[in-house]
């Protein structure tokens, strides 16, 4: 679009401000996790690792992190597999009510978390699961699989629909064609979806808090810390959380972008 240089500069500057606004809370969190003052404000105090030492000595925090990793490692493969299956089914087959199923599959992230939390809590306690790790796993799969489906479906939309049939036409059975064509074409986006599911599971706090009972993940631990008082210990846990989810998301983005630039060649 042709606009004056000033307009261009102003919008770009505003965009920079928006980025600063979004990253400011993330950056300050890292800063204060290393700041010696008990109350996080400016001017800064000295450098310290005390807060990390404190949380790493806290059995509740350690257990929460263990739970988080355990849950993410179970949730991500299952949610990715189911998201993949749904995306592949949408790409490959036609059946009645397909659109309805798709809309339904994309719904969970759009329902308020407390509402899902309440519904899940009521449902899972009816079937005797609430307050257990499986309860958290089950709900996380519901919350993450739509992301996996969306990201993998996007990849499928770039794949020539004839490829799989071309392989069959040359003698490959259903499964063989799937193995030879679909797997190589989608593997990076599957990995990206896997990382994204881990990140979403990692950061989920609301539904987990509802259905988890006494089982805590790191996000729920942060929630309980928040309910007490401001403390740099939260910054320390927060930094670990940020570092983890940012690495996962950047990894996913790298995979998707590499795919895009590769195709553009």
């Amino acid at each position: 679009m042709r606009v004056s240089r000033t307009t261009r500069r102003l919008t770009l500057a505003f965009t920079g401000l928006a980025l600063a606004f979004l990253y400011a809370p993330i950056l300050t969190n890292f800063v204060f996790s290393l700041n010696s003052d008990r109350f996080p404000t400016i001017p800064l105090g000295g450098f310290t690792l005390e807060w990390y030492r404190l949380i790493l000595a806290d059995a509740l925090v350690i257990d929460a992190f263990k739970n988080t990793v355990k849950i993410a490692l179970i949730v991500a493969p299952i949610a990715t597999a189911m998201g993949f299956a749904a995306a592949y089914a949408d790409y490959r087959f036609n059946f009645i009510g397909k659109r309805l199923v798709l809309v339904f599959a994309l719904m969970p992230p759009l329902i308020p978390l407390v509402v899902i939390g309440l519904a899940m809590l009521a449902y899972l306690s009816r079937i005797g699961l609430s307050g257990t790790l499986p309860a958290i796993v089950v709900s996380h799969i519901v919350l993450t699989s739509p992301f996996a489906m969306a990201i993998i479906r996007l990849r499928f939309s770039q794949i020539d629909g004839d490829l799989e049939f071309a392989a069959q036409n040359l003698g490959a059975s259903n499964w063989r064609a799937f193995w030879e064509i679909i797997i190589p074409s989608t593997k990076t986006s599957v990995l990206a979806a896997f990382l994204l599911c881990m990140a979403v599971s990692f950061d989920e706090y609301a539904v987990t808090w509802f259905v988890g009972g006494l089982e805590e993940t790191s996000s729920v631990r942060i929630l309980s810390f928040l309910q007490s008082a401001v403390s740099p210990r939260i910054n320390a846990i927060g930094s670990i959380t940020f570092a983890t989810s940012i690495s996962l998301i950047l990894g996913a983005q790298f995979l998707v972008l590499r795919r895009l630039t590769k195709d553009a060649k």
Binding site: F165, Q168, N169, L170
Partner: peptide
């Protein structure tokens, strides 16, 4: 016969 047993390759 399924696709893969027809032995009629195709130029798409």
């Amino acid at each position: 016969l399924p696709i893969w047993e027809r032995e009629m390759p195709m130029v798409w």
